[in-house]
Every structure is written in C-alpha cells, then in structure tokens.
Design a protein around this nucleic acid. Structure first.
Lengths: 286, 286
DNA sequence: CGATCGTTTGACGGTGCTCAATCACCGTGG
DNA sequence: CCACGGTGATTGAGCACCGTCAAACGATCG
C-alpha cells in the first residue's frame, strides 16, 4: 500500500498481522544486544562486558501493521531501531487523530506505564524493527545497567520536549504555515542523524499529515502546492525538497497575528503572509 | 511585556523575578520531607525511616511570576505541591502559545533534562509551591529511594499521556467543541483528586484558554456563551458549572466531520451541531 | 472614583471545510 | 495488452465559521 519505495525486502510476504502479532516464539525470536540499544540511545555503555551479554528482544513490524493498539494492555516499552511509526487515537466516530511520528531511537509506549493500558496506537508506516523492553525486566535492567537508566531518561526527556511539536503546528492559523512548520520539524529531525535536511522522504500519507496538522487533507494538498508555487519547496509526491530554507523558516514564523497584543506595534507585520505571495504572482484575494 | 496581566498579588512588591529567582538562601529556605513528596506522587514510601530524614527544597511561587524561563539553564525538576502553572513558549513576534496547565502532583521541567535548557516557560497562575529536585541529586536519590524512582516514572508516564490533550482540543473544528473538550479535561483532572467534577474554578484567563485551544480569545467568550445557552454549562466569570454532563460529553465528541471517511455513513451526523442548538435536553445517540 | 485590565458583544471579510470530480498509480484479471 | 476497481493526490466551487477590528461592559485595585 504505502511501501513500494523501500520495500524490496519483504520477507514474510502477505502476512499482514492485523491483530497483535504474538512475539515470534522460541527458535527464531530475534534478539539484539543491549550494547547496541545503548548506542542507539546515545549513551556510552559503562560496563561493556555486561551489556554485551544481555540480549533484548527485537520485534519486526511490517508496513501498515500495528505495534500496539489503543486500549490494549501494555507489556513492554519499545525503542525504534529502524523505520517510522505514527501514533494515533481513534474517536468513537472513527476519526483518526495522528498524534505524532516516531523514528529512530524514539520511545514508544512509555505513556502506558501509569495505568497499564496504551492511550494510543502505534502503526508502522514502513518496514520497522523495535527493541522491546519487557515491563517486568525494565526496572531490574535499569538498576543493573546505569547507562540504560540514563539513556532512557534522556530519550523520555526528548520525547516530552517534542510533545509540543503538535502544538507548534496546530497553533498556526494559516494551513500553509502549519505545513511549513511540520516540514521544518521533519527536516530538523533528519539533521540530527546526519541525514540530508534539504531532501525529505515523507513516509506518511497526506491524510496522516492532515490529521496531524488539524486540517482537511485537501487543504494539505493545496498547501503543498502553495509552498511549491512560492518557491520554498519542491514537491514530487512524497519526495520533498527544501529549496529556500531561510524563506521557509521565515514564513513558518507567521503566527496568529498578535492576537490580544494591544500594544499593537506590528499590526502590519501579520499581513506579510499576503506579501509573501507577492514574491510570485499574486493569487487569492481576488 | 506580556506578563503584567495577572501580576496583581505581588506580596514581595516590585521584586518581580524577571530572571531566575535564586533559591531563598540559608536561613529561611523552606524544605519538605521526601515522604510527603512520595505520598504526593501516589506511591507508598518503602523505607519510611529513610525518606522521613531526607528533605527536599520547596519553592514558593507567587501568582504571575515564572518558575523558570524558556531557554534558561535547568537546575532542577519540579513537582507541583499546590497551585497551578501554565507552560508556554513565546514566538519571536511575541505570541504566547500556552502548551498546557500543570496542577497538583504534576512534574515540571523534566523536558529540560535532554539538553539542559528549558524548552518552555512555566508561570504560576495562582500562589503555588513546588518541590525542587536538584539535577545533581536526583539520580542519587532515585537510586537510594526506590519509591521515588517508581513515583517519578509514574508521573512522567502520566504527563506523556496527557501530552495528547492539547492535540485533542485542537483537533476539533468547531470552537465550542474545543472548549467543551477542554472543560471535560479539567473536570476529569479535578475528579482524580476527589474535587467536585461539576464545579470548576478556572485559574487561567480567557486569553490563556484561547491560546491553548488555538482560537481567538473573543471566540472563547462566544463559545462559553453558546455552551451556556445550550444548557450544557453555567458560566460566572471563571466559575464554571457543568449542568448536563452527558450532553456536554456527547457534544465534545463532534469531530472533524468524518473527513476521509470513505464509508460515508453518518454524513448527516455532522450537521448535528447545528441541531444541538435547537435541542436543549438530551441529544446523545452515538 | 478613575485607571487598567479582563471579558463580552457586534459586524465584516477571508480562510478553510465540505462536497464533488478528476487524475495518477498500481496490482489484478480478463 | 488494456479494462477494471481501489487508493492516494489534486483541483474546483460554495458557504459557514472564525479571525480581525472595534467598542462597550465589568471587575479589581489604587
């Protein structure tokens, strides 16, 4: 469905796992070294001889299948090794609210610790694999391996800081600004891992983006078109190129026009979005 | 520039703490027992004789003054003992985005751990006091007192789960629905601590609410009026009474009208918001 | 009692949601 | 090979809703 870009390595074939796939039992259960997990989390293994001997279960998730369901009992905390996930909640009427996207080294499912149930679902957007830290083992492991404790703490702090990203995109009034901020967030996250921050391969659909930005998916399409039309980005399906980084950044700063600010200075600033269009032919307002 | 709004209750006079206010030194530095903090976090002190002897610095924050500033170096993780805070980020142009509200037993500033700087500011909405766990001591304490480790983990998990609240309110298209969801969130949080969940005293201004909901503050006023007009709530300045809980809950479920829902059933359901006006009593269905 | 801020209400214009239709892409099967 | 659904992405048209500007109202405190 989504995957034909990097999906050449389909090993299990059509086995789609619509329901929770049981952990591969016994023989072929894949495992990873704790050392590798620590490196993934960005911490130096303090006792390498110990962490080398400890194995952490790995779980492969095929594109489109769910890592865990909203409401399901939590059994483990997951750390993404590769691939991308979307986290979402589904309203009674079926509307799916995408809360965020999680990639390499990000933690999934920690928010289930407090009451034992997942408040959101996690669905893989592409072939992915995650480390699964069993809830029964995690506390013991953290005590035995101090580096894991630090690494997890660090990752959780990052995730908490990133939680404001969704507020950042949704706070913008104009849909094009929302999209611009979203693209910059993706770009910044790519840059952290040394990836090119000017060429993005979005693993999620327009509808996922729309839900995440809080707009209709048609509006996302239009906004892509506008941003491209203004020369900020180039759009080729899910391949996005950032052509004018600074302009995009400046444009993304357009906020709710100084609402409530009775000081009033800069009441003309807000109109600059209209001016931004002036860079190229004037559109709208016609 | 922005904060002279709720600065009325200045007990220290003009000493406004524009910068990080140093912890009250020596003599009068208030301290609380670790045991009390553990109880606040909802965990049983495992070694009471130990936790009774350990003291945790307390910090009092007057209404309107900031606990920490966005961008400031983090020195401690705070746990709210009493009072309410708003967390916010300020855009270059001065627009203040309210990310959330933190009350009793909630953790503030943990998101600064990953890079040492606070990604958001925290401002007290009313007289408040917080436990301040110094960053240098926190790891040692967590190791010595297992209950603290568990309690913090639990609190962080809750906070992470609550991070989706802002997405929940902003996801709604109609402003009245956003406000309804917000009120229900507040009500639910009150209920956790045994407070009456049908009578709310909102400690934040309309402008704060507006920023948090992603709408203009005039729209918040109008939405309050509408919800009251429909008989869902009663409004008396910042005192809100929930008159018809079920109706309010049903109304809050109105989502983006089945966008993308190709099944298409219920395309008339969405209009029910307009119908809601005509009906004061129960209209629930679902 | 006046000043300041928070809150409410009104009017207008623009933006985006809704409802459609169309195109592009893909795997399937005649 | 092309017709055939199925899905995602794009584009268009109309109208309700909310942001903006403005002014009045209310509360609190000096």
């Amino acid at each position: 469905m989504f995957q034909e870009r990097s999906q050449d390595t389909n090993q299990t074939g059509p086995q789609q796992a619509w329901y929770v796939r049981p952990i591969p039992s016994a023989a072929e259960a894949p495992q990873g070294r704790l050392t590798d997990l620590l490196v993934l989390l960005g911490v130096e293994p303090d006792d390498r001889r110990l962490s080398d001997t400890i194995l952490v279960p790995l779980r492969r998730v095929s594109a489109g299948s769910t890592l865990f369901h909203e409401g399901a009992q939590a059994d483990a905390v997951h750390i993404v090794r590769c691939g991308t996930f979307k986290t979402l909640r589904i309203a009674e009427d079926g509307y799916e609210q995408v809360l965020g996207f999680a990639g390499r080294a990000e933690v999934l499912g920690f928010d289930a610790l407090c009451n034992g149930r997942h408040p959101a679902s996690a669905i893989a957007l592409e072939e992915a694999s995650v480390y699964a830290l069993s809830l029964r083992e995690i506390d013991g492991l953290r005590h035995r391996v101090g580096a894991l404790d630090i690494g997890l703490q660090h990752a959780l702090s990052s995730q908490l800081a990133r939680a404001s990203e969704i507020a950042e995109v949704m706070a913008a009034v104009a849909s094009e600004v929302r999209l611009a901020r979203f693209l910059l967030q993706r770009s910044a996250r790519m840059a952290v891992y040394g990836q090119s921050s000017r060429q993005l391969r979005l693993p999620m659909s327009r509808r996922d983006i729309a839900s995440h930005l809080g707009v209709a998916h048609e509006t996302v399409s239009r906004s892509f078109g506008e941003l491209a039309h203004w020369g900020f980005i180039s759009v080729d399906n899910r391949e996005i190129g950032i052509l004018d980084f600074e302009a995009l950044k400046a444009f993304s700063r357009m906020t709710r026009g100084m609402v409530d600010d009775r000081a009033g200075r800069g009441s003309d600033e807000k109109r600059s979005r209209a001016r931004a269009k002036g860079i190229s032919p004037n559109r709208v307002s016609a």
